[in-house]
Nucleic acid binder design. Structure first.
Lengths: 255, 255
DNA sequence: GTCTATACACCGATAGAC
DNA sequence: GTCTATCGGTGTATAGAC
């Protein structure tokens, strides 16, 4: 992996040449994001970015070995920025029992998506034409970061025993076993009903945002945020209703 | 609008020339769908379709005045096929109190999406590059057909008074007014809380399917259908729990 | 590190012969 | 209705001069 393939960031201990290069890479990435914002993710090309920069295409090949490497950086950065936005929304909101942190997190998710619809599409829309994601699954890491936030805000206050006793249709033994074998770094710390609830909540949140970003709910007009928030509150209420009180299963919250 | 711009169908009362033309259009559309299935919606081009048909591009221009007209037909047909699949799922399942019709409909939605992921992406993914949807909103009609199915299966058994009294966070006056002014042909027949619940349910269903189709839940493996069904059952249960019994509001179901 | 020049593919669309 | 030929544009990527 070349330097261009990892997201650019402040790099204090590098040589002048390396710092210059990092600045150039940042400028290229930034210009590419502007282009995506203005013309959609599927019109991204090295030529277009080069044009905007007043350079020729070939100069870009000194920073990115291929178009795919640029796309990978953009996708990874979008995941990171989205996770940052969600985290910032949670951190920046004073605790208020009337506004659950999960709802704040979901609203941060939606806010970023409607503010950066094209970059959201870059992540969650149709994969780019002729783009092959790197084998290592570098985007999986960024995705997991965000899912961890929602896992914490949605289910962080409950014990494994509580989640395991959630009131919902029983999962099949095969599914339970599969979920229990998931790597602990992901959802593995949750019991199967917890994974199921978290996935359901994620889909609920994501689907409403997706429909809005793609324009399928345009007839709602400016009130989509309100419907989204109400839906998220209902969702949270329902999930909490399904999880029994701590006393009935014993134990303290384990995270 | 030329004949090529409307979806092809059996046309008994037409001349020989018109029937030949309809057959040719059907073949072109079918080939285009195969191409989308094999290479993704964003690689669709008249040239590629012509190649598969053993024709030259120019021949296609005798059936479709532009690429966009072909895309519009494909999008409209995908909406229709999806609605057909959902309707067929509902119609083809014997009444069983253990499997609510809404869940059957949702499973039909998911089934079509995972069976035809590229065509689902064509509808709900990122709009095609350089494609401008026709001004008339011809796809809106096809979309409304499907939303009507879910409206019926999810809320058809409840009166306006029941839906209006649903247990959920109150909607703002501005939003209530906006929803009440919607054209009756769409969700207009529902009271504002009904629209909100239906939209929330649609987003929930759609989001889970979208995540699966785009591969973001691949780690669940073959059990995604089960998690989906459980989520839909929970969703239905929650919505029904929020709607008061008929006796408490009076009146008979009005549809 | 950036440039010109180039190769080779793709695309949508049009003109005119048959 | 289909063809050849063509225009003008897109794109990724490489070679070699400076």
């Amino acid at each position: 992996m070349t330097a261009a393939e990892s997201a650019p960031s402040a790099s204090p201990g590098l040589s002048l040449r390396e710092r210059r290069r990092a600045v150039a890479v940042r400028e290229i990435v930034s210009t590419a994001e502007v282009h995506i914002t203005e013309h959609g993710p599927h019109s991204l090309s090295l030529r277009a970015v080069a044009r905007s920069l007043g350079m020729t295409v070939q100069a870009l090949y000194h920073y990115f070995p291929s178009r795919d490497s640029l796309v990978t950086v953009l996708v990874t950065k979008a995941y990171d920025d989205l996770a940052d936005a969600v985290q910032a929304a949670v951190d920046g909101t004073p605790d208020d029992p009337a506004v659950p942190r999960m709802v704040v997190a979901a609203e941060g998710y939606r806010r970023w998506a409607v503010t950066h619809p094209e970059r959201f599409q870059l992540i969650y829309g149709v994969p780019l034409r002729n783009y092959a994601a790197p084998a290592g699954g570098s985007t999986t890491l960024a995705l997991r970061r965000m899912s961890a936030i929602f896992q914490r805000e949605l289910l962080g206050g409950f014990t494994t025993a509580q989640l395991d006793a959630a009131d919902a249709p029983a999962l099949s033994p095969a599914l339970r076993e599969h979920l229990e074998r998931l790597p602990v770094s992901g959802f593995g710390a949750l019991p199967p009903p917890g994974v199921s609830l978290l996935l359901s909540a994620w889909g609920h949140m994501h689907g409403l945002v997706m429909l809005e970003v793609m324009g399928h709910t345009a007839f709602i007009g400016a009130h989509q945020g309100e419907i989204f928030s109400v839906s998220m509150r209902n969702m949270l209420e329902d999930i909490h209703r399904r999880i029994p009180a701590a006393g009935s299963t014993g134990g303290m919250p384990d995270q």
